[in-house]
Amino acid sequence: MDTPGVEEKAAELKAQQLEKARQLVSHIEAGDEESAARLIEELGRMHESLLFQELGKLTRDLHEALNAFRLDSRLSELTQTDIPDAKERLNYVVSLTEDAAHRTLNAVEASLPMSEQLSSRAGDLAQSWQRFRARELSAEEFRQLSGELGEFLAVVHGDAEAIRRNLSDVLMAQDFQDLTGQVIRRVINLVQDVEQNLVGLVRISGERLSTPDQKKMQEKRAEDQNKGMGPAVPGTAGASDVVSGQDDVDDLLSSLGF
């Protein structure tokens, strides 16, 4: 960054070296060996100091660049906690959606054969019923139909209840959309955060980044908590001090006099 300064310095140094070299020639021509030796030594030192200055500057630049990376705590927080967190969150989404799909499929697989059987038995009985209405059934056949009808009504009663239960299970399984939606929104926010930080890093590349002060971070955390943070995902930051389920909530509330 201060290359112009260095170039000026180098030019100045070169002029000084040239001057000293001329003096050296005149000293040697005059036979003043002592002064000549002193000038040779000085010339050597000047050369070395220029090298050291350059090296020092490079070292300082490198050090500052490294510090700039290290000091941007938001960026390191992103890479150290938030991104692994996001991976956990997305895994949680995968497992929630998988569970929901299985629950739904189980309920459907259990209900389909029931409704198929109900339909086909009702079809058979309807035919017999029609024959009864047309007075085509013998007394013996009617006794049989009456027994079958009684049986069928009991089956309908049980199966309809089972299908209702399965359907309400399908209903409950849809809660994944809310839960995963909350998690995915958080990950989207993170991606935007990463993007902004990278853009910022590119813009100020090399410059020292300021450390976010602790108070601001705490305020942000409190604000997050008020807004709500979505489902607690196991294995992520913020998953500490969470209740493990409804029983835990009930215990906590009853300890508060609820």
């Binding site: 979505g230 969470v242 209740v243």
Partner: peptide, 9 residues
Amino acid sequence: AEAKREQIV
């Protein structure tokens, strides 16, 4: 889905 004890309190 908020499950922090602090929040429940």
